[in-house]
């Protein structure tokens, strides 16, 4: 495997990791706010904060890791995306900042502040929406190079049906992933009342993810037909994704094996995400940046891969420890510790 391919695969893996853990976090924020509005907060919010409190900081790191790695491996992306995405990037940053800090403010500081909870819940939906537009932009057609200038065509992005279907997909996916996880967590916590509520959320948001995916397929055909055709080469990946979705939904519906159900949800998104990513190659930004043209030099590339592998030896045991203490420790989950 070429080193460029190794690099982008690793980065894509981290983005996938972010997609899962951040979705749980973003969705949970929304559900917590929704719970407050519908006066169900006494049932679910305790469960949500029990899971989120020890891991929220880790979520953010996945994202930082992805973009720092991307710029390290493919410095040209900094130049193109950096120039073009000043405004949307800054808005996403403001949202992330508000979300992260207000989470801490409400969680560790004064309890029960409605404004904090609203900011936290609303940003949970706006962030995935704004971040997902970067994937849309990568399809090409929204950034133009005129001479030495990089120009971002914001109006075209805002009027593109493809762009909006991606936003729609991002939001419903967040809610579905999060609800599926919370169902599993509530079940482990043996919290019947919470389980009923979050299970309903999961079932409610399940089919929209498929509808949204179909919309994305259709609009992509209009927007970038070459990519659409490449995606067809990976039809089996998307097939697997659909099968996993059906398995997950069935398990949740029949109230069985919520843990396995959540793994199926993760696989559903794994196959879809990697099917999309693989067919997107070699482009990072169609048509200006490919993983080959943007690649850093050989020395740095190799060094980064070595460091990355060394780093994994440090991170994986630590992550396992974290999960063991807070996710797989039944007593903690049940609130006994």
């Amino acid at each position: 495997m070429e080193i460029q391919l190794v690099g982008i695969t690793v980065l894509w893996l981290f983005l996938y990791g972010y997609l899962i853990v951040a979705s749980i976090d973003f969705g949970a924020g929304f559900f917590a706010y929704y719970g407050k509005l519908t006066k169900q907060d006494h049932l679910i919010n305790h469960l949500i904060s029990r899971y989120l409190s020890p891991v929220w900081e880790v979520t953010n790191v996945f994202f930082v890791f992805f973009f720092v790695g991307l710029v390290g491996f493919f410095p040209d992306t900094a130049y193109y995306y950096g120039t073009a995405l000043l405004i949307p990037g800054s808005i996403a940053l403001v949202l992330l900042t508000i979300r992260g800090s207000f989470y801490a403010f409400s969680n560790y500081g004064s309890k029960e502040n409605k404004v904090y909870l609203f900011l936290y819940g609303a940003s949970g939906l706006l962030i995935p929406a704004s971040l997902s537009t970067v994937l849309t932009i990568s399809e090409g057609g929204f950034i133009e190079k005129r001479g030495d200038e990089i120009i971002f065509l914001a109006d075209r992005l805002l009027t593109s049906p493809y762009s909006w279907s991606v936003v729609f997909l991002a939001i419903v996916s967040v809610l579905f992933i999060s609800a599926a996880f919370l169902t599993y967590y509530a079940d482990r916590a043996d919290d019947k009342a919470a389980l009923e509520i979050v299970r309903k959320f999961a079932l409610f948001w399940s089919s929209p993810t498929i509808i949204a995916s179909l919309l994305v397929f259709i609009t992509l055909y209009k927007h970038n037909v070459a990519h659409f055709e490449k995606m067809l080469n990976y039809w089996w990946m998307f097939g697997f994704s659909l099968i996993c979705f059906l398995a997950a939904s069935a398990l949740i519906y029949f109230r069985k094996h919520y843990g396995t159900a959540f793994i199926f949800v993760m696989l559903q998104f794994f196959f879809a995400f990697f099917g999309y990513g693989a067919s997107h190659l070699p482009y990072i930004l169609d048509p200006y940046v490919t993983i080959y043209t943007a690649y850093t030099n050989e020395t740095m590339g190799l060094t980064l891969v070595v460091v990355f592998i060394a780093g994994l030896f440090l991170l994986i045991p630590s992550l396992i420890l974290l999960l063991k203490l807070f996710l797989f420790d039944a007593d903690y989950v049940k609130g006994k510790k």
């Binding site: 953010n60 460091v307 440090l314 630590s318």
Partner: peptide, 18 residues
């Protein structure tokens, strides 16, 4: 980009243990 990259590792490590 090497130390920038390693900084995120250190940050990751700290976040987990914190």
């Amino acid at each position: 980009s090497l130390p920038l990259f390693m900084e995120t590792f250190a940050f990751f490590f700290e976040a987990i243990f914190l």
